[in-house]
Every structure is written in C-alpha cells, then in structure tokens.
C-alpha cells in the first residue's frame, strides 16, 4: 500500500465536512436547482473514496454498508407505493416538494453506499472472497 502522506491527510481532513455539506446541498436542493439524488449520492461516495486515499485499511465491513444500501433500496421501493397509492398527495399537493426531496435523500444515500461498496470491494479485492449478491 502507498505510504501515507501528511499533506494528503491534512487536506482531505479539511475538505471532508465540506464534501458532506456539498452532498447534502445537492440532494436537498435537487428539486429546485441542479443536483439531485444521483449527483449528491456520488458526492457521498467520494467520502468513502477520500477515506480510502488517506487510510487504505479494510477496517470497515463492506457487508454492513451493503446491508444499509439494500435497506435504502427497499425504502425507495416501499415509500412511493405507500404514498402514491394511498392518495395522500392528491389531497395535499403542497407536500409534493417535500415528498420528492425525501425520495432524493433516499436515492442519494442508496447511491452513496452503493458506489462506496463498489469502490471498497474493488480496492480490497484479493482474487478470492465470498460470493456477493445484489
């Protein structure tokens, strides 16, 4: 593994909260301004990437991250079914922006964990391992 440079550590540590902030900004304003779930989610994935760049140790279980990713995938499928088929939005159209922002948030977190898991598994792949499923 590459040796750890103090400069990279300091700069990534400095940028870390701003990356998190940018991700949330892109997701929460995605309905009104450029951005959205996928773009914000990729910015979240960059957090994992930045962490890998300064600290390339496999101490975070990708199985747990994958579990969270699948949980949010289930939420993305379940929440629209519950909200749209119950006819709640038809009666209260002022909540539609809030609903879309919530869905963007789910998509963002799901994409972030998904890309993060993909990067981790690629980076720590040793040629053999458990067979991973979707």
């Amino acid at each position: 593994m590459a040796e750890r440079s103090l400069i990279t550590q300091m700069i990534v540590g400095l940028l870390y909260p701003f990356m998190l902030l940018l991700g949330f900004y892109l997701i929460l304003n995605g309905h009104y301004t450029p951005g959205g779930g996928f773009q914000g989610g990729s910015t979240f994935a960059m957090l994992f990437v930045a962490r890998y760049v300064v600290f390339p140790v496999a101490d975070m279980s990708s199985e747990h991250l994958h579990l969270l990713q699948r949980l949010f995938l289930a939420l993305i499928l379940v929440v629209p079914i519950l909200v749209l088929f119950s006819g709640f939005l038809a009666g209260a159209s002022e909540y539609s922006g809030m609903y879309l922002t919530l869905m963007d948030l789910f998509i963002g977190v799901q994409v972030g964990f998904g890309l993060g898991v993909a990067v981790f598994r690629f980076a720590f792949f040793k040629g053999i391992g458990p067979s991973w499923r979707f």
């Binding site: 760049v53 890309l115 990067v119």
Partner: peptide
C-alpha cells in the same frame, strides 16, 4: 446536472478506480 455527475464520477471515482487498478 450532467456536469455535476460527470465531474464527480468522471474525474473522481473513475480516476481512483484506475489508480487502484494501476497499484
């Protein structure tokens, strides 16, 4: 929107994946 996705994925994630592969 495409520009944001391209900037994050094209020059961030993909570059890192290539660098990991090169390692």
């Amino acid at each position: 929107e495409l520009a944001i996705a391209e900037a994050v994925i094209g020059s961030g994630l993909v570059t890192l994946l290539y660098l990991v592969a090169l390692q």
